[in-house]
Amino acid sequence: MSEAALPDEAEHTPVQRETLERLAARREDRPVFPDDLRARLRRDLEGELSGPATAIPDGESLFVNKHALATIHGCEARWRSDATTSDFVPSPAVVQGAVAHKAIELTLNRRSPSTPAELVDTAIERLAGADRWMSDWLRDCDEDDRAEVRGAAVARVTSFTEVWPPLKPVWRPVTEQSLRTELCGGRVVLSGRVDLALGKADGMRAGKVVVDFKTGSTAVHHLDDLRFYALVETLRTGVPPRAVASSYLDSGSLHVEAVTEGMLEAAAARVADGVERMVGVLHGGDEPVLRPSGACRWCRELEGCTVGQAFLDDRDRA
């Protein structure tokens, strides 16, 4: 998205104008990366992972996404539970995020204007009829749960339209873009799904901006999530994004970070460390390290975890 492409200030609210100004950059200000960066990052990563990857059984792959990395670098016991348990049951809180993302996708791609409520209703209808993880839930849930999902999704889409202006086709907006790269002969797979991507590369000159939509307050791992996306995008296409950004819809704030080689190298080191621990816990017989946090409250292992229980008790008494 170029600075020259900014529309007239009168068309937008101050926060919408600020969003555009924070993400715009002149061509001469966009970084040009070396054309061997992708090969170097892949070589370094596969060098670090060559040992751990041999412990992954033949024919299997270790799938690594931003949530798995954040969890393994937090409580390893929680990660092992998530990785080995398949009894995931969608809840209204989880489903509303998926519905809101689908509605935002419709917002960006519809030619005629629609209200957030209309977009959410269409999103629910489309997702209920698709073969997705929440489809059965949406078809079978009771009216109260459906109303809860609808209300939360409408609020989130409304917040998006208040913070973000209509995005023009020339900015190449893409929602829910899948990113994926395979390492060590497919034994390790890095994957993600970007909420919003804007712009494109010009040769080795970076141009894309990757955006994650967030509700609630900031968290340290939000930056790590985006750096992981930047790494996977670089391994996928050879050209890093120009910048990554967290858009906090509740507060209207936008946290933007420029992508550098140092950031990508740090992200690769974090991936290598995380994968090594995943393989050790899952296939190497390593005892998972317990690291209690506020996330213990939603951990399926809490009932039998004295460390997590003690942490929450102390926190509640504080």
Rank of each mutant, 00 (worst) to 15 (best):
N109V: 03
W79F: 14
L6R: 00
V188H: 07
A152G: 05
Y229M: 04
A77T: 04
D316I: 12
V289Y: 00
P7N: 05
R146G: 14
G59W: 00
L198A: 06
K102G: 06
I56N: 02
Q96V: 13
G129W: 08
D195F: 01
R78A: 14
G192R: 13
T215H: 14
T85A: 13
D29Y: 00
A272M: 02
S253Y: 01
G216P: 07
A25T: 01
S61I: 09
A245V: 12
D36P: 04
N109M: 10
M1F: 00
S112G: 13
T71S: 13
D136W: 01
P169W: 13
R132P: 00
G51P: 02
M134Q: 05
S81Y: 15
E143V: 10
S61H: 08
G129T: 03
V259K: 01
T306F: 02
R291A: 04
A258S: 12
E261S: 11
A153G: 09
T175S: 14
H67S: 15
P90L: 07
D316S: 13
S247L: 13
V279S: 03
S159R: 14
D142T: 06
L45E: 11
V89H: 09
E176V: 04
D202L: 05
S293A: 11
P116Q: 09
W298I: 12
Y229K: 01
T218G: 10
E143F: 02
F213G: 07
L235T: 05
D136E: 08
G199K: 02
D35F: 06
N109F: 08
V275R: 03
D212Y: 08
D44E: 15
T215A: 11
T306K: 12
S246P: 02
L62E: 13
D136M: 04
S246V: 13
V174Q: 15
E162D: 15
V89M: 12
L37M: 11
L108Q: 04
E28D: 09
W298D: 15
E46L: 05
S50E: 14
S114G: 07
L249R: 12
V281T: 12
P292S: 06
T107L: 12
L167P: 03
A272F: 07
D225R: 03
V279C: 10
S246C: 14
R126D: 11
V271T: 10
S135A: 11
V281D: 09
C296Q: 03
V95F: 02
E3T: 10
D195Y: 00
V95P: 00
S217V: 14
R172M: 11
R187H: 12
V94S: 08
Y229Q: 08
R193L: 09
L108V: 14
L302W: 14
D314M: 04
A53Y: 11
V289L: 08
D87H: 10
F311M: 06
E233S: 04
C299L: 06
T84K: 04
E276C: 11
E233W: 06
